[in-house]
């Protein structure tokens, strides 16, 4: 088994917000674990400290507790900078895990991109 089976890919995309403003979207894919730090934080650095951001998990499979720790770190940084974040596209299992851990108190958890964008 190669480490690639756990690899996370993060791309930065743009979408339209409710008032026509352009919002950055970090789109994650693969599995998310502690090993995903470079991929996730590398992309996050490009959008941190600015306006509202969407996090897209619709192409993410398994997220372990190390991966959840990275996501919490991003959300804490955003919160300290006064930056709004909305999350969408979680699988049922990942939504369950996020809810159990109270991550919904740090960022809105939404079904799809449209709803998430409208919340910001």
């Amino acid at each position: 088994m190669q480490d690639g089976t756990r690899a996370t890919r993060t791309t930065i995309d743009r979408t339209s917000g409710p008032d026509g403003a352009t919002l950055p979207v970090l789109r994650f894919s693969g599995d998310i674990s502690a090993a995903s730090k470079e991929s996730m934080f590398g992309a996050w650095r490009n959008v941190s400290g600015g306006g509202p951001v969407l996090l897209d998990f619709s192409k993410v499979g398994h997220i372990d507790s190390g991966g959840v720790g990275l996501i919490i770190t991003i959300l804490v940084e955003a919160s300290k900078a006064g930056q709004k974040v909305a999350i969408f596209g979680l699988t049922t299992t990942n939504q369950h895990v996020f809810t159990l851990l109270g991550i919904g108190t740090l960022a809105g958890l939404h079904k799809d991109e449209q709803t998430a964008a409208a919340s910001l």
């Binding site: 190390g66 919490i72 851990l101 109270g102 991550i103 740090l106």
Partner: peptide, 21 residues
């Protein structure tokens, strides 16, 4: 149980949730 508020304020490691899960 992990405390999100404490994690928010840097009073708790963002990790350490595996056993709770």
């Amino acid at each position: 149980k992990p405390d999100i508020d404490r994690k928010m304020h840097g009073e708790e490691d963002p990790r350490g949730m595996g056993m709770f899960l």
